[in-house]
Each structure stands twice: as structure tokens, then as C-alpha cells.
Design a protein around this nucleic acid. Structure first.
Lengths: 254, 254
DNA sequence: CGGGATATTGAGTTAGTTCAACACAGGTGG
DNA sequence: CCACCTGTGTTGAACTAACTCAATATCCCG
């Protein structure tokens, strides 16, 4: 039933939206039966991608929108000489590809960090969504606004925080988002990131990221072994990063 | 008819949307008569703010959404110790305050750079908009996606471009946006910005911004006297900045 | 004329960079 | 089973882009 292609993408049978594992999460807005039925129709496929696979590619034109159902991904842009900036991380419940319709082609790429499962929505049914389900239209605007808010906060980090503050902020941010999705413990967090990803997200070099990280560990603020991070002194981290706690919240669209 | 309060904000009589000066611009999507009538109702007031006035304030709760009708403004965030990051500049046609509904309170502030005229929309009529005018709902999502795209591009600058590249990019970006609005000449541009604004937008110090700017002038790429910038070698600037030209486009909502 | 905001420039410091070497793990093929 | 490779992490050393501090110039405004 499931094919796997060399590009790391494959299609598999649909999970019915009524039994969508994401909808059970406390953070999600409840759907009416009518909305549920619509979304069932709106979703035309499911896509599974391996780590490293490109879900969307800058400069290309995708006829699809996605909701990330399982796994981690990240949005990024590159400069002509291959400098890379990670714009944001996508977690379950995040909507991908919305910027596409605005401008003719995608203005950023999206790559899977883990194996990833996505709900696929054809872009041309979007107008139908707006027409028949205004509340869902509102949800889309909500998701877009939330996306911009996360990038805003990230830009504040990269523009005005020091390396240590940036790392602190990023970890608190990801921890908070995972928490509301029940994807991690109280102080523990499994991150499918290399230090290169962290560096590219924070606008730092790999070496300096490593050294700063080691320093934070030496100071007892956190541990990071393998793919597991433990926030050993969350209070101090918050203070360091000037962290406000407004992340986390998710809403539809599944 | 027009009152001016000490906070720099004042209300004045409405300009009818049918005669909205912005709607004439080539970049705007045409409205149907029915949409026009709705927007007339959606818009409940007009607001004039002086340079330096706060249109929206981080941590506060505004019951209003705005469209910038005339003038310049900027969105920004600050850290507890007053470091400031400018997130984006708002030009006529830009929508402000959308992030508000998503999270309880505003996550960033907006300040007027010049005297500014705004259309005021009550937030609670937004649902009505989605319900009765799906196309306008789509426009709002479009504007939100465009907003995120601009911040994405800005984040790439601050994270991965050098100081000179950042300045080049910012000027090309603003020039391009002003061009489509007929607010500047082919190579000339009136910027109501101090170098402090530029520094805060680009994540640089004031001194370094000045020195880099001087260097670009010395190299003949541009001039900047008073509030007027001239791009003397646009090609070289584009090359320097790795500039792609995807800005500019505006759409409603007026 | 004086005061506040802005711009400019020099001098010294530092946070972050690049280069380079090495350690370690997992995976593959002989 | 070992030899080897590739991706990742760690650390030291040298360098530099960008920073802070400080002084001066300029302009506008009351």
C-alpha cells in the first residue's frame, strides 16, 4: 500500500480525519461534524517523507498545501553562495505552503528532519474552503498570523540577542511547543537537530554554536547528549533569554 | 473636524472607500461593488497619527485592525533591557494588527515614522467579513502570508548577510515597494528613517551602520543626503545583496 | 543663543569567525 | 572481523567584523 520513491517521498492510505491523532490534543480547536466532513474532502492524500527530503522547494511551484501530521521539519532560505538561514521549525499541527499562493512560487524551502507524515490539500480547493467554511478561513489566517509571530520572535533573537541568549531562547521555544503537543517531558526534550541546524537557525557559525552550547552545559543550565536535551535550570535559562512564554498554542487545520 | 490629542493620535472624517486613493494604484486588486459596500461598513473610522506615535503597543490589547492609508510606520519588538529590533516597515496598503487576535495581546508594537493616516476596522466584525465575503477572507490570508514572507527575507538578511549586504538589501527592498506604489522615482527614494532605524532593522550598531553606509557611498553605489537616497549603481547593489526581486506586490484590504 | 537629536570619525575591545586537528559513532564492503 | 569512510561533535589558535566608548560636527527648533 505504501510506495517509497528515491526522492524520499511516498504516498500512503489516508487516516480518516475523524480519527486524526492530532485532533485529540487539548490545544486543538474542536471541529463541527460539518467541518470535519469538509476537511475529509479537502484532504486528498497523505505523504510520508524521510529525513532530509525536500517537501517544498524555493523557486518551485507546488499545487499543494500541507499540514504536518507527525514528525519535525524546518523552513529555510539560502543565499546564492549557499549560506543557509533556517526560518522556523515545523511541528505537528503546523501548516505549510501558504506563502505559495501569494507570490507565484515558493519563497522558501521545507525539509524533513525526521520521518514525517503530511496531510495533502490541493491548493485550488482553498477558495472553496473560504466560501463554504468561513471559520476555517479564519483558522487559516490565524495560522498565518501565528507563523509570522514566530518568525518575528526569531528575528528579534537573531538581530538582538547574544549567542547564549539565542540558544536559550530556541530551546525554551521548542520545549514549550513540544509540551503543549505532549511530545516531551517536563524538562526533557528529544531534538532531531544537529548543531549545524541550530547554527543555521540562530545565524551563528557551527564552531561558535558548539562552544556556546558547551559553556551553557558547563554552567549547569542544560545537558545535551545525543538527541536529548534536559533543561536543568529553566528559570536561569528564561532569565538569560528574556523569555516570555507566548509560544505553544496551536489550532487547526487538520 | 479633526481633533489632535497629546498622544499623537486623532480621528477625522472618513474618506469614502469608493474614492480611496489607494484603490487607484495598479497593484491593487479591483473590488466588486458589493465588496466596496461592505468595506465601507467595515471601516468605522480614520486615524491620523504623528511621527513617533504608537499605533499598537506590545503587551496591550487593541480592539482594532488597521490599514495604513498614507505614510510610513514600522513594527518592532524590544528586549527587557531595551534592545530593539525592527521587524518590518509598513507602507500604504499594509495591514496592521492581525497577529493580535491569534494570541491574546499584541506581540509587537507599531510606531509611526511620518504622519500617518489609517483606516480603522473593529476586530469583532472580522468574523462577519469571513462569513459574508470569502474573497476578502482570502485577501487577509494573502496579506498575512505576504507579511510572513517579508519577515522571512528580513531574517535571512540579519542571520546570514554581512552589514553591507544587509544595507543593500534593505534599500532595494524599500525602493521596490515604493516603486509599485508610485511613491518614488526610478532611482531616487525619500526615506523617513534615521540611521538608528536602519541599525535597529538590520541588527547592527548605529556606529557600524554609519561606517558601512559611508563606505557604500564612497564606493559610488549610492548617495544618502538628508532623507533622500539615490541608488547610483543598482546593478552592483543587487549583486552585492543577492537581491531577487519578489517584493513590491500589494493587494487589498482598504 | 542653547539644547536635543542626528551624523561622522577615530581608537580600542570583543563576540563571533575561519582554519585546522582530532575524537567518536555508525555503516559498508572486503 | 577489520579497514575505511562519512557525518557529527569538540577544542585550540589566529583573525576580523562588528561593538563600545568618546569626541566633534551639524542641524533644527524654541
Amino acid at each position: 500500500m505504501t510506495r517509497r520513491a528515491k526522492n524520499g517521498l511516498s504516498k500512503s492510505g489516508n487516516v480518516p480525519c475523524a480519527r486524526c491523532p492530532l485532533r485529540k490534543k487539548a490545544v486543538m480547536r474542536p471541529f463541527t461534524a460539518r467541518e470535519l466532513e469538509f476537511v475529509e474532502w479537502f484532504k486528498t492524500a497523505e505523504l510520508v517523507a524521510d529525513p532530509g527530503a525536500n517537501i517544498l522547494l524555493e523557486g518551485h511551484n507546488s499545487p499543494h498545501l500541507f499540514t504536518l501530521l507527525e514528525g519535525w521539519a524546518f523552513r529555510y532560505k539560502t543565499l546564492p553562495d549557499a549560506r543557509r538561514q533556517i526560518l522556523s521549525f515545523a511541528l505537528p499541527g503546523d501548516f505549510l505552503g501558504l506563502q505559495g499562493p501569494a507570490l507565484k512560487e515558493m519563497q522558501h524551502s521545507v525539509e524533513a528532519l525526521t520521518q514525517v507524515k503530511l496531510c495533502v490539500f490541493p491548493r485550488e480547493r482553498l477558495l472553496h474552503l473560504y466560501q463554504k467554511h468561513p471559520e476555517l478561513g479564519h483558522d487559516i489566517a490565524w495560522l498565518a498570523a501565528r507563523g509570522e509571530h514566530m518568525v518575528d520572535e526569531h528575528l528579534l533573537s537573531v538581530g538582538r540577542r547574544t549567542a547564549a541568549e539565542r540558544i536559550g531562547y530556541l530551546l525554551l521555544h521548542l520545549h514549550s511547543r513540544c509540551r503543549v503537543l505532549d511530545l516531551c517531558g517536563h524538562r526533557q526534550l528529544k531534538l532531531p537537530l544537529t548543531q549545524q541546524h541550530v547554527a543555521d537557525a540562530l545565524g551563528l557559525s557551527l564552531v561558535h554554536t558548539n562552544k556556546t552550547l558547551r559553556r551553557l552545559v558547563r554552567q549547569g543550565l542544560l545537558t545535551w547528549s545525543g538527541d536529548t536535551v534536559e533543561l536543568r535550570n529553566e528559570k536561569a535559562l528564561r532569565e538569560l533569554a528574556g523569555y516570555d512564554e507566548t509560544d505553544g498554542a496551536v489550532r487547526p487545520l487538520i
